[in-house]
Design a protein around this nucleic acid. Sequence first.
DNA 1: ATTCTCCTTGCTGTAGACAGAGATCGAAAG
DNA 2: CTTTCGATCTCTGTCTACAGCAAGGAGAAT
Lengths: 221, 221
Amino acid sequence: MSEAVAEYPRITRRTLHEEVLERLRDMIIEGRLEPGQRINEGQVGAQLGVSRTPLREAIKTLASEGLVEILPAKGAIVRKFTAKDLAQILQVLKTLEQLGGRMACELASDATIQAINGLHERMLALYKSNNRLEYFKLNQAIHSAIVAASGNPVLMEMHETLQARIKRLRFIGNEGPQKWAGAVAEHEEMMAALLKRDADALLDVIGRHMESTRLRVADVF
Amino acid sequence: MSEAVAEYPRITRRTLHEEVLERLRDMIIEGRLEPGQRINEGQVGAQLGVSRTPLREAIKTLASEGLVEILPAKGAIVRKFTAKDLAQILQVLKTLEQLGGRMACELASDATIQAINGLHERMLALYKSNNRLEYFKLNQAIHSAIVAASGNPVLMEMHETLQARIKRLRFIGNEGPQKWAGAVAEHEEMMAALLKRDADALLDVIGRHMESTRLRVADVF
DNA sequence: ATTCTCCTTGCTGTAGACAGAGATCGAAAG
DNA sequence: CTTTCGATCTCTGTCTACAGCAAGGAGAAT
């Protein structure tokens, strides 16, 4: 047996609780499970065609990620976020993204930055064609990609966790053409700064972007 | 029923998986479960007097916290951290702690800062009496307290998670009188800056403290 | 002696069962 | 009519059982 064959040992056997975890995360982010709603293990398990064991394991992970809250002897409920929660999350998110942005300006390859620019272009197209759902997904992907360009997986992980918490809020909060235009303008600025590798400018835009996100989403409450 | 009675609804029924979670975390941090070691569910469960179900739930949470790694069909192993991992974690930790420090300078009450100073004094006493274990615990507590003084629980949570990952490394890495003295000196500086609410100075010390932590711990690898 | 194959053994992944806590609804007392 | 107590029922928390994968060793073939 040659050694070339064993090059990619990532066979990734997917277990049920992994599968369930993703499904639940999606259900929460898509709003199929509403904030405050209790997760009935029997019901959801039946719905997913899975016994309670892997379901419960997935719920424990979601709790650790901060997407659900576990009330002993009462079960798990989808976590509700207040305006204060949002502000606190965005503050940390801002800091993390600024760190990612600075490192990206310093360390990322031109190819990486070009790839991010590609995402940005595609996002603009979706904006013009008024495809809000796909626009939103790409928007999130761009933020993640900037952080990923830092080359620090720990930073990515923390960023991803926090981003997931407020993904839903961001989606339903950013409604309306005026808000949308504002967000796009900020993204234009971000991209311009990143292309110039101008860290100071990038950090500044990211800071303002987070603050205006907070204001835009605040209407939800 | 008056409303005063319901003031503290935190009866905190402790479930088994919560209990197990804490125990496992301690076992990993204390080194009773060594990095790379497989966690045999039957064995550990028997040792803790608990069936596999709550144990597995706790393991899922630990995986989400980044303390163990789950290999499908092979079980969980205590995560091994490389020098690179350490550097990446410390980089994020530095950023988070700097954010916490800046906010603490701006927002914390005098009482809070005095409380942190109290911890610091006690830590110095432990240094002089050469009580390394208790010194270490207080050291960690001080870092946490500074971040807590920011008043941002999300920030605390992220900080706590990352701190837990490298707690063990920090403990075994900071051995030796010279390293110890250096760490204490940095803490002195931090405390002085905090007492003066001099954010710039505090951020600077925190940055240097993290870097020297990295160097001190690097010998472990 | 080496390698391949098959078997055995141990452990994980999942399902199902059981006990106990909480919630709900109705009835009785004020 | 309101309130309180109690019975019932649902759902969670935990345990146990079972199936299937993985690793390791024994034996046979080369």
